[in-house]
Write a protein that binds this DNA or RNA. Structure first.
Length: 119
DNA sequence: CATTTGACTTTCG
DNA sequence: ACGAAAGCCAAAT
């Protein structure tokens, strides 16, 4: 198994229940800021591993990115079972549920508002 | 070897 | 906030 794949697996395994990460985030932490699609590929390969919280990985919009209806529903159920709530549009409040690995040891700038279209 | 494809992301209008 | 277009990277055709 490739190191990059192992890193991605490790990162995904580190996502706590009740939180989610975007593909881009995982890719960035794994060392490839533009490698979101590679994360996708790896998840395809590991889709059968239930040791891996693959359902805690969503796209940048906070939506479930899976194409397969069954897997999509399964992921939704898993998330709800972990306490993640979906809004009326079937999306996740990334501002609330996004998991941010803490690599910084200095002061952290909290309250990073996600999407403020208004203003 | 050139093209297409995909569970994506970002930017622009 | 949404849709379209361009970027990006690896595997499949």
């Amino acid at each position: 198994m490739k190191p990059y794949t192992l890193r991605v697996i490790t990162i995904i395994k580190s996502i706590p229940a009740g939180s989610v990460m975007t593909y881009g985030q995982v890719a960035a932490v794994a060392g490839s800021p533009r490698g979101a699609r590679q994360v996708v590929r790896i998840l395809h390969a590991l889709s059968g591993i239930h040791k891996l919280p693959w359902h805690r990985v969503v796209n940048a919009k906070g939506e479930i990115a899976i194409k397969d209806e069954e897997s999509r529903s399964l992921q939704m159920l898993h998330l709800q079972g972990e306490g993640v709530v979906l809004n009326a549009e079937g999306r996740i409040d990334l501002a609330t549920y996004r998991y941010i690995p803490m690599d910084i040891d200095d002061d952290m700038d909290m309250n990073r508002d996600e999407d403020e279209d208004i203003l």
